[in-house]
């Protein structure tokens, strides 16, 4: 009897906690395509209609920011259908300091220039406003905003707007920001990682390595992978020399 009640309560909590999204239709999830990563996410991929934060690890050099931006671009490209539009919103001041998005550099991520609306906002407050407007519009499927950081209230607003519209929101945390508490469904740390010489780079114009840490995930534990981005696809990197340095659970 008690066991039954407990079970019911647990399932209720899961449902209320947005984490019982594992029952979601496949269309509601953006799969990484790398089984190891998808398996450790409770939803079998990155859920649409939610807020995801991407940043650099604490105390990382500001130049790591570009890696986070690259990883975010890859996810943004995957979260829009071939006919959908996405928004990338930068803060002008941050763009002057840490570089602005360079069109030709978006090529390896499969972001169609016709499907990406760029916005250069004056302040982080405006960036958040643009994100929210984008989430509310039926013409937009995914928004990405660059801000220093996000407090609980602002992140809840975005999370709710994303849930309501089913569009996906990405928050790219600037290098000067601190990782406070917020309501993002998943939070990622990205750092560049040097691919070993033996990696097969043939045929691809650009092969990128990231060390990606999922450090906060509602309904899932933290995990870390070394991934490779090649021809618009993720691969979990497995090399004998590298594998022993990773925690066993995270080796793919």
């Amino acid at each position: 009897m008690t066991k039954h009640v407990l079970q019911k309560l647990r399932s209720d909590i899961r449902r209320l906690d947005h984490t019982a999204l594992s029952g979601r239709a496949e269309a509601d999830v953006i799969p990484f395509g790398a089984p190891a990563v998808d398996r450790s996410l409770p939803w079998g991929g990155l859920p649409r209609g939610a807020l995801h934060e991407i940043g650099t690890p604490p105390k990382a050099a500001p130049s790591f920011f570009a890696s986070a931006a690259g990883f975010a671009a890859a996810l943004l490209a995957r979260s829009v259908a071939p006919s959908g539009m996405a928004i990338w919103c930068q803060n002008r001041r941050r763009a002057r300091r840490y570089g602005q998005i360079y069109g030709p550099g978006l090529a390896p991520y499969g972001l169609d220039p016709n499907r990406l609306l760029m916005v250069n906002a004056e302040s982080d407050a405006d960036v958040l406003w643009v994100m929210e407007e984008g989430l509310r519009s039926s013409a937009i499927q995914a928004v990405l905003g660059e801000v220093a950081g996000l407090d609980l209230t602002a992140s809840r607003r975005l999370q709710l707007a994303a849930e309501k519209s089913g569009s996906t929101a990405f928050l790219l945390r600037g290098p000067e920001g601190a990782a406070g508490n917020n309501a993002a469904l998943t939070r990622w740390h990205v750092r560049p990682f040097i691919l070993p010489q033996e990696v097969d780079k043939t045929g691809a114009e650009q092969v990128t390595g990231w060390q990606v840490a999922l450090w906060r995930c509602r309904g899932g534990g933290p995990a870390e992978w070394k991934v490779m981005w090649k021809d618009e696809a993720f691969y979990c990197h497995m090399a004998g020399a590298m594998a022993d340095r990773l925690p066993a659970a995270a080796v793919c």
């Binding site: 539009m85 002008r92 998005i101 069109g103 030709p104 978006l106 220039p113 016709n114 990406l116 609306l117 760029m118 916005v119 250069n120 906002a121 004056e122 405006d126 406003w129 643009v130 407007e133 984008g134 519009s137 039926s138 013409a139 937009i140």
Partner: peptide
């Protein structure tokens, strides 16, 4: 057509607060 209209309305909203020159696309 609806999507196009929703998009142009969004662009107008963004442009009126952020400035028309700051809402754009990058093309090759």
């Amino acid at each position: 057509a609806d999507g196009q209209q929703a998009f142009s309305q969004l662009v107008d909203r963004l442009a009126s607060r952020i400035g028309a020159g700051h809402v754009f696309r990058l093309v090759p």
